[in-house]
Design a protein around this nucleic acid. Structure first.
Length: 475
DNA sequence: CTGCAGTTGGC
DNA sequence: CCAACTGCA
């Protein structure tokens, strides 16, 4: 008997571990819920709910292949090795397969599981699945992990040019095993079920994910370059929750993008190339997580930035979290996060920059808030993005390049469409005043919309001074 | 060693 | 024009 241990790979198609397991013999599947561990990782209730909803879909798909899905519960990952071993003993499993996950705790869990199983006479086989390349196989000439995206990207494209990762073989139905699937938990302790509107926004299942990919590639990808910056339009793929949960694979995304561009990486549609770069940013930050594990331990990539004098300002932090800063674009973005579990990428940069620079609040507080609400929350990407914005990370934005939330609003939401959608109290304002209502206060009613909680100019200079005071090597 | 390049700007 | 710096070949 083969066992496929499912984690962040909740799909049938192009699942390396699943394909390999079923090719070797009769297979059963296992999924483990570890709510205390998820709490410790700040996993969002909407994300946990998304896993559960996808599991329902996946169980049906597995049953059509006669692969039973077993569900087990542990508090933390501490008990995972024993739990997997018990399943192996109960069903006389010879080999356990899983797809690699990255991060300090994930690696430790998997190594402990591997060694317990091997000691107990059960073989294990791990697979590359959520990345194009094994971390550690793409290095500089000096043998180090890359620290800048440009060079990393170049190395990726050279490798991809030589050989494109192939999709896993489709899984064929097996003979029924007479083992019943377990029921999927309806509710996980400590994680509230999200509102219906949020769930409706992100339907579960592989068909949904594949549909989104096809629509994006057919209708939008050629204009991705320009549309992706406009939060009021559906100019991005909206695939991130599906990628994070493994409902769709990066390989499937890459193949779909390339086939719309006659298989070309470096000619044809600029939109295709830019979108592939986004897949490579995802790849980059996961490699960073492995190569520089301090970032997964709440440490900045650039150690000297530890000395920054972050402000302890709980009221400002809360205003930012709740979308009450008095800057319409920021507040609209923060409300989009709370209501949909997702935020447009440009807005993630704008609000992150605002928190870490204008409010001078520790980026880790923003990182945690994002994780607690993002349905696509992913340690590597979220941490990488925050450290980029806060100028503490790899390839980070130069510290003196501080986004102005009003200018960004005028540039990327010129008609205020996005703002009006999330801030109905401002719908009556004209396109000129909607980006900063107070500027003209007295001229019209702002329906109780508050004044800005911080002065952009002086707070900008405060941040510049704080960074300038750091030792020169960190600038 | 040298040369080159660097996601997403603002004033 | 800011402010030079670092990573990498």
């Amino acid at each position: 008997m083969q066992l496929i241990w499912l984690r962040s790979d909740l799909r049938i198609s192009d699942n390396t571990a699943l394909s390999t397991a079923t090719a070797q013999g009769p297979t059963i599947a296992l999924w483990i819920a570890s709510p205390e561990q998820w709490q410790a990782h700040d996993d969002a209730p909407s994300k946990v709910d998304f896993w559960i909803r996808n599991l329902h879909d996946l169980r049906q798909a597995l049953e059509r292949l006669n692969i039973p899905l077993l569900i087990r519960h542990t508090d933390t990952w501490q008990q995972v090795p024993e739990t997997v071993l018990e399943v192996c003993r109960m069903h006389k499993v010879q080999t356990v397969h899983w797809n690699d996950e990255y991060g300090v705790n994930e690696s430790q869990r998997d190594q402990r599981t591997q060694s317990l199983l091997e000691r107990s006479g059960v073989a294990t086989r791990t697979h590359l699945d959520q990345l194009f390349f094994h971390p550690g196989t793409l290095l500089t000439k000096a043998g180090n992990y890359f620290q800048v995206f440009g060079q990393f990207r170049k190395a990726c494209l050279e490798h991809l040019h030589r050989s494109l990762p192939t999709l896993a073989h489709p899984v064929k139905p097996q003979a029924p095993l007479g083992i019943a699937s377990d029921s999927i938990p309806r509710h996980i302790e400590g994680f509230d079920t999200p509102a219906k509107a949020l769930r409706d926004h992100w339907p579960a299942g592989e068909d949904e994910a594949q549909g989104r990919l096809s629509r994006f590639v057919d209708e939008t990808i050629d204009d991705y370059q320009t549309l992706r910056d406009l939060p009021a339009r559906p100019g991005t793929s909206q695939l991130s929750p599906y990628l994070a949960a493994g409902v769709i694979s990066p390989r499937q995304c890459l193949h779909a993008a390339l086939s719309s561009n006659r298989g070309e990486f470096d000619s044809g549609s600029q939109g295709v190339r830019t979108w592939i770069d986004e897949l490579l940013w995802r790849e980059f930050y996961k490699h960073i997580l492995v190569g520089y594990p301090q970032v997964s331990r709440h440490r900045p990539f650039r150690a000297p930035t530890e000395a920054l004098p972050w402000r302890d300002a709980p009221e400002d932090l809360e205003a930012w979290e709740q979308g009450r800063t008095g800057f319409p674009l920021i507040d609209a973005a923060m409300r989009q996060l709370l209501h949909t579990g997702w935020m447009h990428n440009r807005l993630r940069m704008v609000v992150a920059m605002f928190l870490s620079k204008n409010l001078l609040i520790d980026w880790r507080k923003g990182e945690r808030h994002f994780m607690r609400h993002l349905i696509d929350g992913d340690l590597a990407a979220n941490n990488g993005g925050w450290q980029w914005s806060a100028s503490t990370g790899t390839d980070s934005v130069p510290y003196f390049r501080i986004f102005n939330p009003v200018t960004q609003s005028q540039r990327f939401d010129p008609k205020g469409r996005f703002i009006r959608h999330w801030l109905p109290e401002l719908t009556h304002l004209d396109d000129k005043h909607i980006h900063l209502p107070v500027k003209s206060s007295g001229l019209f009613d702002t329906n109780g919309y508050i004044s800005p909680i911080v002065d952009l100019d002086s707070s900008r200079h405060r941040a510049l001074a704080a960074f300038k005071a750091l030792p020169a090597s960190t600038n």
